[in-house]
Every structure is written in structure tokens, then in C-alpha cells.
Amino acid sequence: MAADMRVYVEAIGGTPLPHGILGAPCTQVRDVSDEHELLGVEWLALGCCPVESWKNPCDDDESPGDVSGGAAEKEFCRPEIEHASPITLYAGTECATIGWTYEEARRHAEATLALGEQRGLESAFWRTTLTADAVDVTPEAGPVSLGQGVAALEGCLAEAYGGVGTLHVPAGAAALLGCCAIVSEDAASGALRTLAGNCVVIGAGYSAENTGPGGTPADPGTAWLYITGPLSIRRGPSSTIPDRAGSSVNIRTNDRRVLVERTYVVGTTCTVCAVNVTLS
């Protein structure tokens, strides 16, 4: 059939992956309107200081020490100040003014952001947080199996944080999680969890990056996995630029441009651990 005989129809819609960073039931996503929160936030780390068991020095004849009130024998931890910086994502639509109205261009840009924001946020979080300060637990011998990798990550997190954490898995490695019952779906919440109880986020944006600490690309046939504390995501309202039809037209080219932006602040706590696994 000739091209000029085609019938114009609506675009094929889509659905973001259900266990991505914005869809995982165990990820805290808050829609906020306070501009101050969207400029970045900081907080005192909670759960990163160890809870110790006290040994009475009077029970040890070799270490009498100063036991006045017991305070001198106990360790104190100064909580660290943690922070999260803003991530701004955008989707831009460019089209000819003939046949496309401003409202059509605006709806297209808004729909593009709605469908792709999760993937874009995963890529940005991977680059700015996961690869930035991760402790690499990959053995000197090289990549390990997926099961061994998850075990190493959960052990790394448990040494620093006693609560439920978040395992970050590229979508390209997700199918292997079911091979050895590494991950199962919680019937009540729909969340993916490991046997230890940690939450699992499977990200398309993670697959697009697939880099190790410092941004080192993964070798063919391998993937990088990360684990963090729980995730808290602040998401601002979307903003359309320009907000009127006339300003969207470039009079030199007669093209129309519409941009939709949204800011997010993704926070996590205590530690980030990484491991390189083989996909074979």
C-alpha cells in the first residue's frame, strides 16, 4: 500500500516494567511539591551505627578499667550526615507545525516522560550513586555465579546495616534469578524478595548502564549487581516548557518544540556494595 494511503492512528502505548525503581512495592515514592526538597536533602543516617552487647569489665580480672557508671566501657557512634542530590529528567518533542498542534505535541512529550521516566531515573541513579562509592566484593578470581554474587552482596550489606535493603539487578540478568530460587514474589505485596528478605529492583535503565564502580563497563557475558539500604524517592510535579502554543514555534524553521521536565531526589543509606557476575 502506498504511504499516502496509510491511516493515522494512535501511538502504541506501553507500561513500565513492574519491578523497576518506581514500581517496586518496597520502594518509597513520594510526590512532593516543596521546591526546597527538590533541591536536595540531607539527614542523619539511621541504622548504620552498630548495636553492641556490653561486657561487664568486673567479670574480667585482667581488665579492671574505669567502670564508673559503665559509660567508659561502652562505645558511642556519631551518626553520619547523608545526602541526596536532585536528578532532573526531560522528554522533548519536535515536530512540524503543519499537521501537529501544540496540544498534540504536549501530550506526546508528557506521554513519553510517563513511559520512560523509570528507565531514565534508573540510569541516572546508577551513574550518580551506585557506581560512585560502591564497595566491590568481586573475588580476585573474577566474576561469580549469580547466586554467589547475591550472597556476597547481602553479606556486605548485613555487615553495615541490619534492616531490609535493596538489590539492584539489570533487566538483562533478571531471568537468571529464578533458576535457583534466588528471588520470589511476595504474595501479599507483589514485591520481589530474596530469601534473606531484601527487596529486588529490576531495571531497564540498569541494563542500559551495566557498569562497575567508577563506571567501568562490564565485560561481555557479565553483569554488575548492586545492593543498598532502602530507597526513598521524592518526585516533583512535571513542568511543560513552553506553557503556550506561540512560544513553542521556531519561526526560522517552522518547527515546534515542547519539553516536559520532572525532578527527583533518590536517597539511600549506610552502604553500597557491588559484585560482577557471569551470565552463562
Results as ranks from 00 to 15, higher is better:
147 G>Y: 07
233 I>K: 07
193 R>K: 10
135 V>K: 08
187 A>G: 13
195 L>V: 15
181 A>D: 15
188 A>D: 12
191 A>M: 02
161 Y>L: 11
246 G>E: 09
240 T>P: 07
226 Y>E: 09
251 I>V: 14
204 A>Y: 00
183 V>F: 01
221 G>W: 08
152 A>T: 02
204 A>E: 05
244 R>E: 10
189 S>W: 03
164 V>D: 07
157 L>W: 05
176 L>Y: 11
144 V>P: 11
134 A>T: 04
161 Y>D: 10
241 I>H: 03
168 H>F: 14
185 E>H: 01
230 P>K: 11
177 L>Q: 01
170 P>K: 05
193 R>Y: 00
221 G>F: 02
235 R>S: 12
131 T>M: 15
232 S>M: 12
217 P>F: 12
227 I>E: 09
142 G>W: 05
212 G>Q: 11
185 E>Q: 15
207 S>R: 04
135 V>N: 11
198 N>W: 07
248 S>D: 01
206 Y>H: 15
159 E>N: 12
136 D>W: 13
218 A>Y: 12
135 V>Q: 11
168 H>Y: 13
222 T>Y: 04
150 V>D: 07
156 C>E: 15
194 T>I: 03
134 A>Y: 13
157 L>G: 11
181 A>P: 04
137 V>T: 14
136 D>H: 14
155 G>D: 14
202 I>F: 02
184 S>N: 13
165 G>K: 02
247 S>F: 06
196 A>D: 02
235 R>N: 02
153 L>G: 06
193 R>I: 02
172 G>K: 07
219 D>W: 04
187 A>M: 13
168 H>P: 00
218 A>T: 08
251 I>S: 13
173 A>Y: 00
178 G>M: 01
215 G>I: 09
143 P>V: 00
233 I>R: 08
202 I>K: 00
201 V>K: 01
139 P>L: 05
170 P>Q: 01
167 L>R: 10
163 G>H: 08
175 A>G: 02
203 G>Q: 00
146 L>C: 07
207 S>A: 15
241 I>C: 00
240 T>L: 04
157 L>D: 08
184 S>C: 08
172 G>N: 10
190 G>N: 06
150 V>N: 06
229 G>Q: 07
158 A>L: 02
233 I>G: 10
162 G>A: 15
219 D>G: 08
237 P>A: 15
193 R>A: 04
214 G>Q: 06
230 P>C: 14
208 A>D: 15
217 P>M: 06
179 C>G: 03
212 G>A: 13
170 P>H: 04
186 D>N: 15
172 G>P: 12
